[in-house]
Design a protein around this nucleic acid. Structure first.
Length: 587
DNA sequence: ATAGGGTTAG
């Protein structure tokens, strides 16, 4: 403003070039009123000034003004097109950005450059369901922009966010880039796609090329460790960060908290949490969610209260975690209180997820009527999560009617999932309805639905050991089976009786008992006993829900062998210690 | 003058 005043005094404000410069200064200083007025009055406004104004409006969040300035330009040049498209992306109007991009290509006669394409790719990534597409990708190759770092990064990111990790990886490999951001994008794609091993491998390759990682890389890496449940790996990466002298930033810090929690160490998670200098709502949610998964319901609620005391407002995710904490700890009354007052106290309207969680809580606790009432009165159509919760409740409380109804709905919604059939078969079996079991077996055979094989993992140093039921291919297989044999007598004395569940495999009863004793989680625990020093905790991960028989057996093993055994199954953590499990047999 | 990567649940 002072500059403008000065120019007026000097009588120079009529000079077109100076005028435009002043407009730019105004735009940068976010004095858009002045900038626009000067431009409107200007006899020869230049495109540079208009573009600065377009982008300035977007940066303060007023897309309408940004677009209207753009629309007012008689003949837009490349920079003004780029500015308005980037503005749309910045404000997450991805479809608007792509629409403008199309219009530019078709009607304007202006050709896109790397700036335009970079924004267009980011719009594809943001829209999520719109992959870069053959046309755009082909254009990039034709135009020779293919190996530009911004473009490589944009393509990798867009393919990744659209769930096409193979395309992302192909682009990345072909580009042979050594750009930090492209590496980060590729590592992120792998870690979000559940390919933790690949993420860690690429991180090593990046280091061997002498590329210095930053906090962005580490937040993705910790996520990779979380998805692998790789405690030792997480620790190693954490040590590297500390050695590099980074003060962990908030994203990497949150990621680390989550990672330690998902790797089975809630204590390490809490230490990492306490070390975050400015904890955000994400930090608190991660910590509360972690405690919930570990079955520490009361502690999670304490944490939630501590958060409220510090004046941090919960969001919808925090409240899902809070309800989850109540669920895993069987705190029905608390859950009801939080659920019914969340809107009033925290201004968070209950969403589908909160309803699903509440229905799960009621169902598990055996309040099936209350659960159904909530299903019928909630403002949403019951989705797979809701029917899944009801099916689980029906299994626990042996309710055949509810179980078959829920299963029917689930099979319609997710026909490809085998778990539904299996759970329903379990319900029929526990009610002695063997013809029902046989019918399901036939349906599964006819529709080609295969039971997902149960698998368990155990990490020692930086090697992951995989186990499948009855598998003898592990290098120490003989010792593992010997260990199980050795345990069978003390187990029997402690009261263990094999619970031959209805298995959908066509095997003889005797075979079943043998298979049961060699379930993947039992193999992993036995391996843990022989491969780790006495007294060390044993951490196992399973891809499915832990089976009832294994749950009973591992409780007893924890006492017989004086070991803490931590099993992360598909839903939660089980901490076995001294003959008991943290889930209180409620899972 | 206009462009790139990361965190929490189910």
């Amino acid at each position: 403003m002072e500059v403008h005043a000065h120019l007026i005094i000097l009588g120079l404000h009529q000079d077109a070039r100076l005028r435009n410069l002043v407009v730019n200064v105004y735009s940068k200083c976010r004095c858009f009123g002045y900038a626009r007025k000067l431009l409107d009055e200007s006899p020869e406004p230049d495109l540079i000034s208009w573009s600065a104004l377009i982008s300035g409006y977007a940066k303060v969040g007023t897309l309408k003004d940004s677009v209207s300035v753009f629309n007012g330009i008689a003949k837009a040049d490349i920079v003004s097109w780029n500015a308005v498209i980037a503005g749309c992306v910045l404000l997450e109007s991805h479809d608007c950005a792509l629409e403008l991009f199309r219009e530019m290509n078709k009607e304007s006669g202006v050709s896109p450059n790397t700036f335009t394409l970079s924004s267009a790719l980011k719009a594809c990534a943001g829209a999520g369901n719109r992959e870069p597409g053959r046309q755009l990708h082909a254009y990039l190759i034709r135009s020779g922009f293919e190996y530009n770092n911004y473009i490589v990064n944009g393509l990798v990111d867009a393919y990744g966010k659209c769930g096409q990790s193979e395309d992302a990886s192909r682009v990345f490999k072909e580009s042979q880039t050594s750009d930090l951001l492209a590496f980060t994008s590729m590592i992120t794609v792998y870690s979000q796609d559940g390919q933790g091993e690949e993420a860690l491998k690429l991180y090593l390759e990046m280091q061997s090329q002498g590329i210095k990682p930053d906090a962005f890389v580490y937040s993705s890496l910790f996520n990779a460790c979380a998805s692998l449940s790789a405690y030792e790996q997480a620790k190693q990466v954490h040590v590297q960060v500390l050695k590099l002298g980074f003060i962990i930033d908030i994203f990497a810090g949150n990621s680390l908290v989550n990672s330690y929690a998902k790797c089975g160490s809630i204590d390490d998670a809490e230490r990492a949490f306490r070390e975050i200098p400015e904890r955000s709502i994400v930090s608190w949610s991660a910590m509360i969610g972690g405690m919930a998964q570990h079955g520490h319901g009361r502690l999670a609620l304490q944490m939630f209260n501590e958060m409220l005391k510090e004046g941090v407002a919960p969001n919808h995710i925090t409240l899902v975690s809070v309800l989850c904490a109540c669920n895993h700890a069987g705190l029905v009354t608390d859950a009801k209180r939080y659920f019914s007052s969340m809107e009033e106290l925290f201004s968070v309207q209950p969403m589908e997820e909160h309803y699903a969680c509440m229905i799960d809580i009621l169902g598990r606790a055996g309040k099936l009527d209350e659960a159904m009432e909530l299903v019928n009165t909630m403002p949403y159509e019951a989705n797979a999560a809701v029917w899944g919760a009801l099916l689980g409740a029906a299994r626990i409380h042996k309710n055949v009617d509810l179980g078959s109804k829920a299963a029917e709905m689930l099979i319609n919604l997710e026909p490809e999932k085998s778990g539904t059939h299996i759970l329903l078969a379990n319900i029929y079996a526990s009610a002695g309805m063997w013809d029902g079991v046989a019918k399901i077996r036939k349906v599964m055979k006819d529709s080609n639905v295969k039971k997902e094989p149960g698998m368990s993992w155990m990490e020692i140093k930086d090697k992951v050991h995989t186990f499948i039921v009855g598998d003898r291919s592990h290098p120490r297989g003989k010792e593992i089976y010997a260990k199980l044999e050795e345990l069978s007598e003390p187990l029997r004395k402690a009261g263990y009786v094999p619970m031959v569940e209805t298995d959908l495999h066509d095997v003889e009863e005797r075979e079943k008992a043998k298979l049961l004793y060699h379930h993947s989680e039992k193999l992993a625990v036995a391996f843990g006993l022989i491969a780790t020093p006495p007294g060390a905790p044993i951490r196992v991960k399973k891809n499915l829900r832990i089976c009832l028989d294994c749950h009973t057996a591992i409780k007893l093993v924890s006492k017989i062998a004086s070991r803490e055994i931590i099993v992360r199954d598909i839903n939660r953590f089980h901490h076995f210690r001294d003959g008991l499990c943290s889930c209180g047999d409620y899972w």
